[in-house]
Structures are given as structure tokens and as C-alpha cells.
């Protein structure tokens, strides 16, 4: 598997990254190097092996249905660029 410049531009746009035109060529090469390296992993036959979900043998932790958190709007909003009446205020986004 390899990527072309077009795919790179699309992926960058999906990730909201702006790439300078002169960066496209070298980045495509870099990404392809990584993908090529992954190709070598594909040489191992994993047909009968279940995908590994964690490096530690453990189960998903569950929590009880209790309210144990929240009620600190000021902390939550502390890093917001703008706050109005207790809301995050952002440049208008409308569909």
C-alpha cells in the first residue's frame, strides 16, 4: 500500500491540517516509507490470531451509575477563548 499526493491532501483536510505546497512531496515520501515498513509486518500470517486490543491482559473496567463528577463550570470554561453567559462562545457555525 502507498499513498499519492492527492490522498495526502485529502487526509490532511480531514484532520484540519494545512500543508504548504512544498511539503507535499517530502511528506508523501515519508508516509510511504512508514507504510512500506508496515508491509513487512504483513508478511506474518495472522489468519488464526485474534486482534490484540491491549498489551496488558486485563478486562474493561466498569463504573457504577453514580454522579461523582461535574459542577465546576468555571474550571471547564477556564481555557475557553470566549465565554458568554456560561456558554463556550465560538465563531458562528451553522448548517
Amino acid at each position: 500500500m502507498s499513498v499519492d499526493k492527492e490522498t495526502l491532501v485529502k487526509v490532511a483536510r480531514l484532520a484540519c491540517l494545512r500543508l504548504a505546497a512544498e511539503k507535499l512531496e517530502p511528506l508523501t515520501d515519508e508516509l510511504n516509507n512508514i507504510l512500506e515498513w508496515i508491509e513487512t509486518l504483513n508478511e506474518v500470517d495472522t489468519e488464526a490470531v485474534a486482534p490484540m486490543t491491549s498489551v496488558v491482559e486485563t478486562d474493561l473496567r466498569w463504573r457504577r451509575d453514580e454522579v461523582t463528577d461535574g459542577d465546576y463550570a468555571a474550571d471547564v470554561l477556564a481555557n475557553a477563548p470566549d465565554v458568554q453567559y456560561g456558554f463556550y462562545a465560538v465563531p458562528k457555525v451553522i448548517e
Binding site: E66, V67, D69, A73
Partner: peptide, 27 residues
């Protein structure tokens, strides 16, 4: 219908003050 959210311990009650039922996970 639950007291707390799917992945955090913040409350789910309808009509609370804005951003008062938000944990750092939800933010």
C-alpha cells in the same frame, strides 16, 4: 435513562445551568 454519563461521572439531568454537568472527560 441513567444518573451519570456513558463514560464519566457527570450528571445527566435535563435543564441544568450550562456546562455545570460536565466532567473533564466530557470536555
Amino acid at each position: 435513562i441513567s444518573q451519570a454519563k456513558l463514560f464519566s461521572g457527570a450528571a445527566t439531568r435535563f435543564g441544568a445551568e450550562p456546562n455545570s454537568q460536565v466532567s473533564l472527560v466530557d470536555a
